[in-house]
Simulated scan of single mutants.
Amino acid sequence: MIRLLLADDQALVRGAMAALLDMEPDLSVVAEVGRGDEVLAAARTHQADVALLDVEMPGLDGVSAARELHGRLPGCKVLMVTTFGRAGYLRQAMAAGAAGFIVKDTPARQLADAVRRVHQGLRVVDPALAAQSLAFGDSPLTERETDVLRAARSGGTVADIARELRLSEGTVRNHLSSAIGKTGSRTRAEAVLMAEDNGWLLI
């Protein structure tokens, strides 16, 4: 029996996934959590073999939770199951130690099969997302440019961003200008949107 941990902040989605997976004769959902910072403790307590993690969760995002599991509980394999099929998320998740990455609209039979393959030590990646990841490549943004774009998501002024990141307004403008240029955008709002769509702002 393969013991599963489900981590998703949407209770209905989590419940539906648990019901589908529990119908499989060799799979058993032993724990469910709604926050990323509850994943490690739940995996330890319930001796999970495979953790199915959403990307965006409160407390700790799924990629960071995957990294924590991989480092501190390597026997528990990680399969990312997310609505956010973004190439950047895929690359970050695999770099964090996830063994698989699929989207939530994957048919139930394929989801169960993905769990089994990950448990066997194989990698499972949504093929369309894998192709997209190869096409887009790694983020062109520096760490500071990423910080500035992440802070710009709230729509605050340059002064607001400077205050939040403890930088001068001139430095913020320089980073914004560079990020706009690298993403081929016309405005910082476009740059934020493009970076988000490519999954460059998660970490």
Rank of each mutant, 00 (worst) to 15 (best):
T187R: 08
A51K: 00
M17H: 10
W200L: 06
P140T: 13
G97F: 06
L134R: 13
S178G: 15
A31N: 02
L73F: 09
G15W: 09
F101W: 03
M23T: 13
A135E: 12
P74E: 07
R109S: 14
E32T: 10
G59F: 09
T83N: 11
R86P: 05
F101E: 01
L129I: 11
G100Q: 00
L5V: 07
D197H: 13
L53K: 03
L193I: 09
H46L: 08
I161Y: 05
G156C: 12
K104L: 05
Q10H: 15
D113P: 00
G34C: 07
M194K: 15
A48Y: 02
D138H: 12
Q10F: 15
A98D: 06
A128F: 14
L69C: 08
V39E: 05
R35G: 07
A96I: 06
R35H: 13
S168P: 00
G181L: 14
R150I: 04
L4P: 00
G15K: 09
V13A: 15
G121C: 10
L141N: 07
E68W: 08
L12F: 14
K104W: 00
R166H: 13
G36H: 01
V118N: 06
M94T: 04
A19M: 14
R117H: 08
E164W: 07
V125W: 01
T45G: 11
G62L: 03
E56V: 14
R173D: 13
A135C: 08
L6C: 06
A11T: 14
G199N: 02
T146C: 15
A16R: 09
V81N: 01
S64T: 14
E32D: 07
S133I: 06
F84H: 12
H175R: 08
L193V: 11
P107V: 10
P127R: 09
I102H: 01
A43G: 03
S168E: 06
A87I: 05
I180M: 06
M94A: 02
H46F: 15
A16E: 09
V124M: 06
L20C: 13
R186M: 14
R144C: 13
V103Y: 03
H175Q: 13
D113V: 00
N198K: 12
L129W: 00
L53Q: 04
A87W: 06
L5I: 02
V125K: 00
L53D: 03
E164S: 15
L193G: 10
T142R: 14
L52G: 04
V148N: 02
V63Y: 03
E24V: 13
A48M: 04
T171Q: 11
R150Y: 08
A99T: 01
D147S: 15
A41T: 11
L122P: 05
V50S: 04
A179V: 08
T157M: 06
V103R: 05
M194N: 13
G121H: 00
A130M: 10
W200H: 07
M80H: 00
P58N: 11
G62F: 03
I2R: 01
S177M: 11
P25Q: 14
L27H: 04
A159S: 15
A65N: 04
L167H: 08
E56Q: 13
T45N: 12
A11M: 14
Q110A: 15
L202C: 10
G156Q: 10
R116E: 09
G62M: 02
A152W: 02
C76E: 00
E38F: 11
L90A: 05
